[in-house]
Design a protein around this nucleic acid. Structure first.
Lengths: 141, 141
DNA sequence: GTCCTTATTGAAATTGTTTTTCAATTATAA
DNA sequence: TTATAATTGAAAAACAATTTCAATAAGGAC
């Protein structure tokens, strides 16, 4: 019953392990870039051809609720999902191929303090995303 | 012909100044928080009751292209617009009332350098948004 | 001010995305 | 193996955004 971590988590949450959930889970776990629901649908149907788009939406919602995937915001629209980082991590996206990488270690406390003083706001959380060119896309292709 | 800056910019871009554009412009210029196209539509119709939603979409698109408004990304969905900041500014949003404030002066160069080294990416741009509670929402209401 | 040209408009239709409904299916515990 | 309740896919509905097109009106020319 060699289950992977996400399936174990789903089960711990009281979910049944179905072909649909396995397919969506595998797709999301192995994705190198953020995928839209339709992209997930297309990819997952190769593993489970009977899969419906509705189930993809529902499964993504569940995975997001469990913190296993996260939404990625692009210039136009924000309906793409990527496996979540561990702990407090942010995303770095390649502008050319879309590859997504997590990184950590932003130290923005000083910034928050200053902005808080200037604006009167109490800063609660933040959201940082970097864009650039990945190694492959920099060095030709 | 006391035109304000946005209308002057629109005209400079070759646009005609219509009631629809005046209405949408006024709404966006005075908005304290990010508004969705439908919210803009509702507010702008108080100034120009004949305004259609399609025109709101088109006008927002134009204003965004001119850099006068910008998209604001929320947890769920990213179809809200706010007047743009001047120069390199970021947004700080109140989690409770939605009020949006611009701030500047993030110094993230050191972070970019380190992340670039670690990941092999060439960092091109970044995107930062802060969330918190504004003064009013902190001190009761 | 009047006329003319053409950008702009609103309504309707279209397209695309997400959610809801519901009967059939199937994972899982007993 | 059976019972039961979660899960599913298909269809329909709701919602959002875009395209089409004839009517309107802004603004330059006179």
């Amino acid at each position: 019953m060699a289950e992977n971590l996400w399936l174990t988590q789903l089960r711990a949450d009281g979910c049944r392990l179905t072909a649909a959930r396995r397919a969506v889970t595998e797709v999301m776990q192995s994705a190198e870039r953020a995928l839209t629901p339709v992209e997930v649908y297309d990819a997952a149907r190769k593993r489970d051809p009977r899969l419906g788009l509705v189930t993809v939406y529902r499964t993504l919602e569940k995975l997001e609720a469990l913190g296993l995937i996260q939404r990625v915001h692009h210039e136009q629209g924000c309906q793409a999902f990527l496996r979540a980082g561990v702990g407090h991590q942010h995303i770095l996206l390649c502008e050319r191929c879309g590859r997504a990488v997590h990184f950590e270690g932003d130290d923005l406390e000083a910034l928050f303090e200053r902005v808080g003083e200037q604006t009167g706001f109490e800063i609660k959380s933040h959201w940082l995303q970097l864009y650039g060119l990945c190694q492959d896309c920099r060095t030709g292709f």
